[in-house]
């Protein structure tokens, strides 16, 4: 079960079983963005409160779906809360880098799961718990599950002032 343990790390299952920042925020003032994965029906709703200083003062997650989409959303909510919008965008980029499939890596997918050639995100950005999701890259159909919350967040952010 080495492959599975790589995917379903304990921290991921913890976020799935005990999702952080679950709920809704009143809109307005909060922003609301919805994301769907048409393939599997996963659904994420992100509520975002951004204060006058451009800082995410609160975030809530609603929706339903598989362990990867829901835990990713939970981790994302914990990671972005209290961050400036620029920091959130940097996190988003770093997470997307983590989720990038390298073809050479897929070709070597038969191995033992040691994953030495994992794409390396910007070292300046600390992904925290989110780094546990790197095992998803080995399961290409699940990448969309992991990135759903982030794509939904991006939609929400686009409605705010664009990044300088």
């Amino acid at each position: 079960m080495s492959g599975l343990e790589d995917l379903y790390r304990e921290i991921i299952l913890d976020h799935y079983r005990n999702p952080r920042n679950r709920g809704e925020l009143a809109c307005p003032p909060a922003r609301r963005a919805e994301g769907f994965n048409p393939l599997c029906g996963d659904e994420i709703v992100v509520y975002l409160d951004v204060d006058a200083q451009g800082r995410v003062s609160d975030v809530k997650i609603a929706g339903q779906g598989c362990s990867i989409s829901q835990s990713s959303a939970s981790m994302m909510s914990a990671a972005v809360k209290g961050r400036t919008l620029d920091e959130v965008r940097a996190l988003n980029r770093a997470f997307k880098a983590l989720m990038t499939i390298h073809e050479s890596r897929l070709e070597h997918d038969e191995g033992d799961g040691s994953g030495t050639d994992t794409p390396v995100p910007d070292p300046a950005v600390d992904l925290g718990d989110l780094a546990a999701l790197q095992g998803v890259v080995r399961f290409p159909v699940r990448i969309k599950c992991a990135t759903l919350a982030w794509n939904t967040l991006t939609t929400g952010l686009e409605e705010l002032a664009p990044s300088a």
């Binding site: 079960m1 492959g3 599975l4 995917l7 379903y8 393939l39 599997c40 029906g41 996963d42 779906g65 598989c66 362990s67 990867i68 399961f139 699940r142 599950c145």
Partner: peptide
């Protein structure tokens, strides 16, 4: 979730469909 069920089954070499 069916996605997770199908993923775990795949680990045992079992092909099932998950989704709508």
């Amino acid at each position: 979730h069916p996605h997770d069920v199908a993923q775990v089954l795949d680990e045992s070499g079992i092909c099932v469909r998950a989704g709508h």
